[in-house]
Design a protein around this nucleic acid. Structure first.
Lengths: 218, 218
DNA sequence: GCGCGAAGTTAACCGAGGTCAACATTGAAC
DNA sequence: GTTCAATGTTGACCTCGGTTAACTTCGCGC
């Protein structure tokens, strides 16, 4: 459990808001008081430093543990999709409980059975066993200029509905796209999705576009 | 957790000793008092009737839950061996934690991915989703007469060492054998193991022979 | 039929992980 | 500078699953 908290702290630390008590509570689906108590325990265990009312910083040890949690989580997601046949919109819910009980041996077997994947189904990099994580270099689709070409890298949502919709559109990591047009005042985007024989054109709203992160190709 | 207790009660009810408090405690690796408390809770939930100092009987509802637990456990064992590549001597330990957290959807996926197996790696039948379980008709190898031919059906041990040894010998469910000879006073057995091109001969002690259950072929 | 060891039970406790209600701090608006 | 809403924290409580220590009850040997 402590490790899962650390994983979530790590994830939130790299967002603009940082790892606040209330965000952690929301992401972990527990009350803020549960979070605060866990922060104290993690501080005692030298996994982080917690200055009340100020914030939280992972120690190197805490970061190591966090990356273990993230590795486990993302491997599990790949495994659920590639081996067990779940849809990528189902894995978030499904991996919740599993995450807590799989052994290290099981984790290693998942890794092997999936062919040592480097990214989770949503495009996030999987930390290596020794705690190294590939850097990401992408931006929200909303920030890409009209006329640009790009490749979808990550999809930053856990919402099953959105994920189902994105899969339908073909907006999954690896897909090349082209921004045809954007309506004014943060209006919807017209996109060409896919390449080769039959690219398709779709119009997507900003709520969806914000969630899709792409790497622009020159 | 309650369901796992029920599963163990069901298993023990079909042994000569029955489902006693101390046997349950031993199998579940908890103290007897933990068992008694759980028995009270299960009785409150109308899963069984518990007469203090006397014993325990599953209600129909309790039996249904027990079979669900057993199904889950045995499916998990098949899955760990066939899909994840664990040895059949490792699955007992490995399935302990997993058992508690897998969802029904995950269970269904395991079933499908394994090709809807009917027996676990140790030969025990897997209950169907609607709670029906195939009858077993086998006897300990120790009770088979000299000269008889039989097929290994089940292997009744969780001991990793014994299981490894049995796998080495080829004494796994499905293997045909022939009892060549038995030393007097419950002495070791000489067996022909396997059929066709190259059956092998081995001598096994009674401790191992007790654990191997076979069906005699006429 | 008594005594005694084994088996079963109860009681009091622990820690983890959650809740809600009350209190403290912060910072932004006026 | 004060006020106040949002955010963070503490405290008292719950459940669950485990423990040990002390107790009953059972049934066997004599």
């Amino acid at each position: 459990m402590m490790r899962e908290y650390l994983g979530e702290i790590y994830r939130l630390q790299s967002t603009p808001e940082g790892a606040t008590t209330s965000l952690l509570a929301e992401r972990l689906e527990v009350s803020p008081s549960a979070v605060v108590r866990m922060l104290r325990r993690l501080a005692e265990a030298k996994m982080l430093t917690h200055v009340p009312y100020k914030g939280v910083t992972l120690t190197p040890a805490g970061e190591r543990e966090a990356l273990k949690s993230i590795r486990r989580h993302r491997l599990l997601e790949v495994f659920l999709v590639k081996v067990m046949g779940f849809g990528w919109e189902e894995v978030h819910a499904e991996s919740h409980g599993l995450q807590l009980t799989i052994s290290e041996a099981f984790e290693d077997r998942m890794d092997a059975v999936c062919g040592y994947p480097t990214h989770c189904p949503h495009g996030d990099p999987i930390p290596t066993k020794d705690g190294r994580i590939a850097p990401t270099n992408d931006q929200p689709l909303t920030e890409v200029g009209v006329g640009a070409s790009a490749v979808v890298r990550r999809v930053k949502t856990d919402d099953a509905g959105k994920l189902r919709y994105l899969a339908e559109l073909g907006l999954v990591p690896g897909t090349p796209i082209h921004v045809v047009n954007r309506a004014p005042f943060n209006g919807p985007l017209r996109l060409q999705i896919g390449a080769g024989a039959k690219p398709t054109e779709h119009v997507i709203g900003t709520e969806i576009a914000q969630v899709v992160r792409v790497e622009v190709v020159k």
